[in-house]
Simulated scan of single mutants.
Amino acid sequence: MNNKPQLIYVLPNLFTAISAFLGIISIISSIQGNYQKALFYIILSLICDGLDGRVARLTKTTSKFGVEFDSLADLVAFGVAPAIFFYMSIGVDYGKLGSLITAFFVVFGAIRLARFNVTTGTYEPSVFIGLPIPTAAVVSAIYTYAYIKYEFLESYGFIFLVLQAILGFLMVSNIRYPSFKKVDFSRANFLKVLIILMIIFSFLYLYPLEALVFLVSLYVLYGITRALYNFIIIIFKKI
């Protein structure tokens, strides 16, 4: 009977450990040139990262240890892993500049995690302040894999270098992004949500990579567009 609470306590941290483990395997895959596997492991890490917090809240086993462990695992899985994936695929061709942008992505990811830990609860729960590091990691990995898959993109490597730098800066920005933690699944909206999800999954089935590129780009651009709109509104109010 006494072991039951301890086993429940381990469960969410197990998902965190798996996420970190998959991040390391992704790094090894990138070094070995298995880029499809590298992307796959990063996406699996994202799924595990989404489960650990939910399991902890569901079982009421949230702890300070879990928060710190989650941040360290995130830095490996969503900071180092996508950075190495990017460097081995694109950054290595740009010498010191490629190394610099790769390093900045990891450093800015660490800053994003630290800021999230110290500001949790001070902002509205429906938004993230700055692009979340798991999202930045998946966007980076999907862009990088698209660069690898489509040969015509090889001439645009510098653009992908710039995109990687932008993702890094977005993580430490004050741009707000929706968290989808408070999506309204009431009966009135259930049908709309179901139809939207069916359309999304249909495109993912027909054109998996293209649909992923479109969806992640839409999310990133939403935050930037919203920030620019609010900035313009503020400027016009001052005139």
Rank of each mutant, 00 (worst) to 15 (best):
V172F: 05
F85H: 06
F15E: 05
L97T: 15
R57A: 06
Y41S: 04
Y177H: 10
D74I: 03
L215S: 02
V67S: 14
E68C: 06
F231D: 12
I28N: 06
K149T: 13
T122P: 01
F231S: 11
R115A: 09
L22W: 03
Y205G: 10
I148P: 00
L197G: 08
L58Q: 08
F169I: 10
S217D: 11
P5T: 09
S99E: 15
A141L: 00
F85V: 04
T135F: 08
A141C: 05
F201N: 03
T120C: 09
I47F: 06
Y123M: 06
L191G: 04
F158G: 09
V139T: 15
R115Q: 11
I101T: 03
L113G: 05
I166N: 04
I133H: 08
L163A: 12
S186P: 06
I233Y: 11
L191E: 07
I239Q: 08
Y150M: 02
S217K: 04
I142A: 03
F86Q: 04
I235F: 02
F108N: 12
F214R: 00
A146T: 04
C48P: 01
M88P: 00
F21Y: 15
N189T: 14
F160S: 00
S126T: 09
V127L: 15
L163G: 00
S45V: 06
L215H: 03
N174E: 11
V106S: 10
V76K: 10
I159W: 10
T59Q: 04
I31M: 09
Y41Q: 01
T120I: 12
Y156G: 14
T135V: 07
S140V: 02
D74P: 11
G109M: 07
I233G: 13
I142D: 00
L209N: 08
T16H: 05
P125G: 03
L209R: 07
A137G: 12
A77S: 15
L113R: 10
V220F: 07
L204F: 14
A103I: 12
I200K: 04
F116P: 01
V220N: 02
V55E: 04
A146S: 11
I28W: 02
Y205L: 07
P134S: 02
L197Q: 06
I18E: 11
R187C: 01
F214P: 01
S45M: 01
F15R: 02
S30I: 05
V107T: 12
E68D: 13
S186I: 13
P132K: 05
I31H: 12
L51G: 03
L131E: 02
F160I: 00
Q36R: 13
Y219D: 00
A114S: 11
F231Y: 14
Y35E: 14
I148K: 14
L161I: 06
Y156C: 15
T144C: 03
I159L: 15
L46K: 09
T144V: 00
S26P: 03
F231V: 10
F78S: 00
A81H: 12
V193I: 15
